[in-house]
């Protein structure tokens, strides 16, 4: 029995090896990809899409493991503490740079990883209910000013990315980001979207994946996009940058692939090679489009980008008064 198994493994390795120019040791067993949030969300879908696409190129199955909790830090800590052998990797999100930047209690630093590469940009959308009397971001901002703090918005938490989108917008408009509108915390994209649909809050700015269905069905109105460029699906909705919101213009969602600090050279080289193939993979691109993301595999140096994101959020957190 064992001999058969070894035979199968050797055969598989030969096939995989033939596809690559040179045979390497890594990987010789299944790889665990930790998604630091619950199943079904945007990050989970991104992780599963990567696992499904990359397995063909890396020649080993990739198992997705959800480890939610503490704003993503539980899963992130699990990976940064794991052996740097390349068999435990992390689907990193913007939270991995944001949380250590704004929360002194955070347990994992922004650079406690080996950065394997950027995966996708996932835009955030500022939206109101379809019957709300605001047709653009300026209208909404004016109304927030007029109502002196009584307007409400839904977010995952004060120091979560979807709280920072709104707070950056308020700050850019010359208001106090913490008191100009009332934050109502909800958990997860589904709950957030429901809160706006049911009219329980006045506006929100969360990831596009959770909002697109309601925008397409006409139940919500998109006012502004938090992304480097306009979304293909919403060509008429301006970006924060276009509207002159300086801080809000720099905020967007993203996913990346991280590993524990000190990954060996052959692992990083292997993943460079694999990610280059994923970047052009038809399935990967289709799945990204369907969850409302733009594939950015290999477009930027991830270590540099993560540093830049950390600095941005650290400065904002100081300015907003979360840390001294």
């Amino acid at each position: 029995m064992k001999r058969i198994l070894t035979g199968v493994a050797t055969a598989a390795a030969l096939v995989a090896g033939a596809a690559q120019a040179q045979a390497q040791d890594y990987p010789d067993q299944a790889i665990t990809l930790v998604v630091p949030y619950g199943p079904g969300g945007a990050s989970d879908l991104a992780g599963r899409a990567l696992a499904e696409t990359a397995r063909d190129y890396i020649g080993q199955p990739i198992t997705v493991l959800n480890k939610p909790g503490a704003g993503g830090m539980t899963g992130a800590g699990f990976v940064s503490d794991a052996d740097p052998d390349g068999y435990t990797l992390l689907l990193a999100r913007v939270g991995m740079a944001l949380t250590p930047a704004v929360n002194p209690q955070s347990t994992v630093d922004w650079d406690a990883y080996t950065f394997l590469g950027e995966l996708e940009a996932s835009p955030m959308i500022l939206a109101v209910k379809a019957d709300a009397p605001y047709d653009n971001a300026e209208d909404l901002v004016a109304a927030i000013k007029e109502n002196e703090g009584t307007m409400t918005y839904a977010a995952s938490g004060a120091t979560a990315i979807d709280g920072f989108t709104v707070q950056a917008l308020l700050s850019d408009s010359g208001m106090d980001p913490l008191t100009a509108a009332t934050l109502v915390p909800y958990k997860g994209g589904g709950e957030l979207a429901t809160a706006l649909l049911g009219g329980h809050v006045d506006f929100l700015a969360i990831s596009a994946g959770s909002l697109m269905p309601h925008i397409k069905s006409g139940d919500m109105k998109p006012l502004m996009v938090f992304a480097p460029k306009r979304m293909d699906d919403l060509p008429d909705v301006p970006t924060a940058d276009e509207l002159g919101y300086e801080q809000a213009g720099q905020i967007t969602g993203w996913s990346a692939l991280y590993g524990p600090k000190g990954l060996p050279e052959d692992v990083t080289a292997k993943w460079d090679e694999v990610l280059a193939k994923v970047a052009e993979d038809e399935t990967w691109l289709t799945l990204a489009e369907r969850r409302g993301s733009i594939s950015t595999v290999g477009e930027r140096d991830m270590a540099e980008y993560a540093k830049q994101q950390y600095d941005l959020f650290h400065a904002l957190a100081k300015k907003f008064g979360y840390i001294q």
């Binding site: 199943p39 079904g40 879908l45 589904g190 979207a193 269905p213 369907r290």
Partner: peptide, 26 residues
Amino acid sequence: LGVPGDVITGVMLGAFMIQGLTPGPL
């Protein structure tokens, strides 16, 4: 409505989107 009520329907929403179907009135 296109809103998942719990983790399991959240996974189902994911499955719908992967298939290119968007749950909701449409």
